[in-house]
Structure formats: structure tokens, C-alpha cells
Design a protein around this nucleic acid. Structure first.
Lengths: 171, 171
DNA sequence: TATTGTTATACTCTATAACTATA
DNA sequence: TATAGTTATAGAGTATAACAATA
């Protein structure tokens, strides 16, 4: 059967299988990680990422810097920062250098939370992801996914649809 | 409280790197896939999965069967099925064999939507995931992640909190 | 004018529990 | 009693656009 208007070759079974199992495995992992963070720290994965980043860098970050790598919209980060601030895990304050920016810093409580939650977090990852893998597997995965990641990061965003001109939108 | 305090060894840099790059890459991929499906079909990834599954199997499924593999709560599936039905992409009807179950079937429109969206879907996956990989890489990823997936599936759910570990966990 | 961040708002999705009805 | 599914509802998260303040 001819696929698509531009003759896009279909994925062969190997590719399909790799794609499905990759997303399925990561999805399962993410779910378990979310559960652990929620149970032991009462925070979401995103909140953990923000706290861990601030705790690791050991200096305040601007909202924009904090958003980098965490794909949020600005308003999304404002929302999350608001939650964390209300919980006493971060503080927000003005910058002496640029009156437009807000500096975000971890509090002692925030730091303590990260440290309390981290062992369980590591345990989940180790148990689910690394236990069934050899050192060789580990390096393969890291190498391969690094290439994929770098490739994606250099790709043009291209968020627009390549075709879609013919049919009316669904429903 | 110190919950995971069994002397959990920290992840070494190799492990941490592998974990981060794996989740980051998949996260980027999922985002792009969502964009494509939304732009070209007006549906979410979950909705696409449900439609694709029904279209592939070519026979109606019960709500419970349809939920399998898509980790939803029943109510979540009811919600999604309601959206798809309202959009004319699936139908829901009674089963002649068991009056408790609801049979879900794809409509012609639903099938057409899957076919319209699939080439772009494949294109995104190929461009982002497979382009930077060799055949060898592909098989490595599939093999490794299959082991991880199978390992996770056989792990006890362990959704409960690690506190109360002294007491009998059953109910 | 461009940038930083907030707010207002609307929407999507998910989870829980109560409920109906069948088996 | 157990199972299939729906509903009601509440909550988390996200996205967009309008906005104010500063560079």
C-alpha cells in the first residue's frame, strides 16, 4: 500500500518495535518515579527537577534560567515557583543588577526535601532501569540516546504541520 | 523521616548520565509527536493510541480491553471514549454476550483520521529518532529497552509508601 | 522596542468515590 | 459479592494573551 502523500516509507517492524518499547519503558519508569516523589516528598517530578537544579547549582537563578531545560512556558514556571514558594521550599526576590528579573533560591527546607527524597529516587531508578542492564548496556544506551538527544536539539523546531492542507480538521 | 536509609549507594556519573539523557530524549520525542498529532489530526497521543489500536485490531473491544496497556483509570477511559465518540471517531454499543460491557468500535472517520495522521507520525519518529541511528543501534535499543520493560512489568507494583515497612503490608 | 515576569482565564487531563446494572 | 462502566467532582497542570515594569 502506498503510504501518505509524500511517499513516506512506513516504519519497518524493527523500528516500530524499538519505538514502542522505548516509549513504553520510559513511560513506566516515569510513572514509578512520580509515585515515589509524591509518596516520599509530596512533590511532582517537575518540582523535584526545579529543586534539584537549584540545590545543585548552589546559587540563585533567574526565572528564565530556571526555565531553561524544563520546557515550560513562563506562566507555567511562575505557577510552579509559586507553589514551591508557598511551601517554603524556595524564595523569590529582586536582583540588584536587573530590576526586571526575579531571583529564585532554595531554602534550607527545600534542600532538606531534596536530600530526603533523593535516596528513594535513586533506588527506584536503579531497581527499575539499571538492575536488568549490564555495564555494556548502560554505555550503549547512554551513547545512543545522547546522539538522539543531540540530533533533536539541533533539529529546527518545525512545530508546524508539513501538510494538513487538504482535509478539514477532524471532528 | 529517613525512609530509604538502607545505605542506598548513589548513582555513579555513568548511570546518572544515562538516566538523564534517556528521559530527556524521550521527552523531546514525545513533545514533537504530540505537536504533530495535534496539528494534523487534532487529537492527543492517547487518543491516537486508542484509535490506532481499534483500527489495527479491526474488531470492537470492551472498555476494559481497550484500557489495557493504556494505563488509565476506568473513568479516564470513559472520558476519552466520550470525546472520541462525540467527534464521531468511535461508537459505543452494548454487547450481545454480556449486558454489563460496552463495545467500542472505530468508525470510518476514525479510521480515516488514523490513516491521515500516520504518515506524519512516522515521519517525525524517523526524523528524530532513527535518522541518527544505525541498524545496529536500533537493535541495541530495542533489545535493551525490551529487557527493561519486561523487568518492570514483572516487578511488584509497590505503589504503596515505603513507610510502615515494619507492619504487614497486606490488607 | 525588546525583555522579564505575573495575572487572568480557559482548557485538558487525571483520580477518587459514589452510583447503576448486570453477572 | 464481584465486575463493567458511568458520573460527579475536584484538583493539578498547561497554554495563551494581556499586562506592567524595566532595559
Amino acid at each position: 500500500m502506498t503510504t501518505g502523500e509524500q511517499g513516506v516509507p512506513p516504519l519497518d517492524p524493527s523500528e516500530l518495535g524499538a519505538y514502542f518499547v522505548l516509549t513504553e519503558a520510559v513511560s513506566l519508569l516515569q510513572y514509578q518515579v512520580e509515585q515515589q516523589l509524591r509518596a516520599e516528598g509530596g512533590i511532582s517530578y517537575v518540582q523535584f527537577q526545579l529543586l534539584a537544579r537549584l540545590a545543585h547549582l548552589d546559587g540563585p537563578l533567574t526565572m528564565t534560567e530556571l526555565a531553561d531545560g524544563v520546557v515550560y512556558s513562563r506562566s507555567g514556571l511562575t505557577y510552579q515557583a509559586g507553589l514551591l514558594e508557598k511551601a517554603g521550599l524556595v524564595t523569590r526576590g529582586p536582583s540588584p543588577e536587573d530590576d526586571r528579573v526575579t531571583l529564585v533560591a532554595v531554602t534550607a527546607d527545600g534542600r532538606a526535601l531534596v536530600e530526603r527524597v533523593l535516596p528513594g529516587h535513586v533506588q527506584v531508578i536503579r531497581r527499575l532501569l539499571f538492575d536488568p542492564l549490564t555495564d555494556d548496556d548502560l554505555h550503549h544506551v547512554a551513547d545512543i540516546m545522547t546522539r538522539v538527544r543531540d540530533h533533536m536539539r539541533t533539529q529546527p523546531p518545525r512545530s508546524a504541520a508539513p501538510r494538513r492542507s487538504r482535509n478539514s480538521p477532524s471532528a
